[in-house]
Amino acid sequence: MTALARRAFQPGELRRRAAAGDVKLWASLLILVWAAVFMIWQGLGFAISIGSVFAIWAILAVSLNLVVGYAGLLSVGHIGFFGIGAYAAAILTSNASYEQLRTEAIPTFAWPFFAALPVSIALVGVAAVVVGVVLNRFRDDIYVLVSFGFAIIAFNVFLNGRGLTRGAFGVHQIARPAIGGWELTGELEFLILLLVFLALTVAVSWLIVTSSFGRVLTAIREDEQAIEVFGYRATHYKLAIWVISAMLAGLAGALFASWTSFIDPNSFILLESVLLVSIVILGGLASIWGSLLGAMAFVLLEEGMRFLPFLPAEYVGQARQAVLGILLVLLMLFRPQGLVGRYRL
């Protein structure tokens, strides 16, 4: 690992790789340049508004990559944890008085954000243990199916558990974080907070995947039975990374709830989960940098399409989805490890 890194930073290495048509390098360059062009063209305000979207998707993608790329568990249910985190933070911090709204009433806690955050993450962790124990029984195709099931069950709970989530009415007036007496109401301030948490997520993920634990995970991904013979309990490892990954997704959820200040079940539909998996695969499996790139490409794709003259604005989301679908097919055909990935499904 270290030897590889050392070689990568030798003088001339980058030029040699670029000349050799290294897909990883060119893909990274392309997306970074694309992002930079957008920034310069559209200005800072634009950067701030899409930066927040990017940061949330990036936290989600990095956390999901821990499970999909490193542990080899193709989970399509990650949006469920995102949703649980979002709803927990929303309900705990919302200061709307629901009795007056005459729709479904839920209790008002009005906690400060930084008090609700650890509680939300812990709740997600508990949910993840339960779901993980069930999911650990399955593998491959059936694993995908049951993880779909988790996403659908979670969505139905958000939509129909009205006593808890107010169903389709959604949760209002979710608090913005406050540090001391300083409330982060501005977009720029919130973006900085998001980036701090993204950096934290990346750091934690990097520590995990470069530790002995991370190495064992990759071995589990390759051959679970073989690594068990050497004394590792694969189920424990899989559960541990599952819970960690879910908690990071919960963190993203809590941040998302606070960022939008209003959430309803439509943010947590199955399709979002499928898009998230696509981002992770597009960027690259078993690569943290890949997930960042994937999230960046995903956000830029949507923003880029807004400027296509022949595409009506209301179809941008769909067009992005279609392009992503086609990209997935092409990747599976030509590059199953994603743009900068290190693991082929």
Partner: peptide
């Protein structure tokens, strides 16, 4: 073997 990781790992 663990195919998609290095010999060292």
């Amino acid at each position: 073997l663990f195919d998609q990781i290095s010999v060292w790992d």
